[in-house]
């Protein structure tokens, strides 16, 4: 069980940040999509920049091992175009409507929001629907 502890702690930190940065706020997401504040863009851009620099440092250091002894490598996403754009648009429609992407859904569920639990239930059904229809969709 102790090997799961680091994931739990980093997860707690992640959920804490998401709520403190108001990324789970429907209002903040509307404000972002209407370009009325830099707040959300600042979060996204600085998160990407920080992750980029960290990845470059890891690469320069050469093959390093993770805590559990595995060599660190960055997996490539499968190539493609249609599934990424179409899936992105469908997810984006949902994000714009309810102002919650998957991370903030879990964080908001933790605050005891019944509405967030309904969103999570919907997201699970949507995921299941994709699994059932996968073979009929263009990828």
């Amino acid at each position: 069980m102790t090997r799961y502890l680091p994931y739990l702690l980093v997860g707690v930190l992640f959920g804490f940040i998401l709520i403190k940065a108001e990324t789970a706020s429907w209002y903040r997401i509307q404000e972002m999509f209407h370009f009325q504040s830099f707040h959300m863009f600042g979060i996204l851009f600085s998160a990407i920049a920080t992750a980029f620099v960290a990845i470059q440092i890891i690469k320069r250091l050469g093959k390093r091992k993770a805590l559990d002894g595995q060599a660190i490598d960055i997996p490539e996403k499968p190539s493609g175009r249609i599934s990424y754009i179409a899936g992105g648009v469908i997810f984006g429609l949902g994000w714009g409507l309810i102002g919650l992407c998957p991370g903030p859904i879990f964080a908001l569920v933790g605050t005891g929001s019944i509405g967030a639990i309904v969103v999570l239930a919907g997201a699970l059904h949507g995921t299941w629907l994709y699994g059932a229809l996968k073979h009929y969709l263009p990828h």
Partner: peptide
């Protein structure tokens, strides 16, 4: 409304193979 939009989030993220964390950040 919340359930329907949730369905879009679940369907779309799986179709695209990731969400804001997996695609936009990682």
């Amino acid at each position: 409304f919340l359930f329907t939009a949730g369905v879009l989030v679940g369907f779309g993220t799986r179709y695209a193979g990731g969400c804001t964390s997996g695609h936009a950040i990682t």
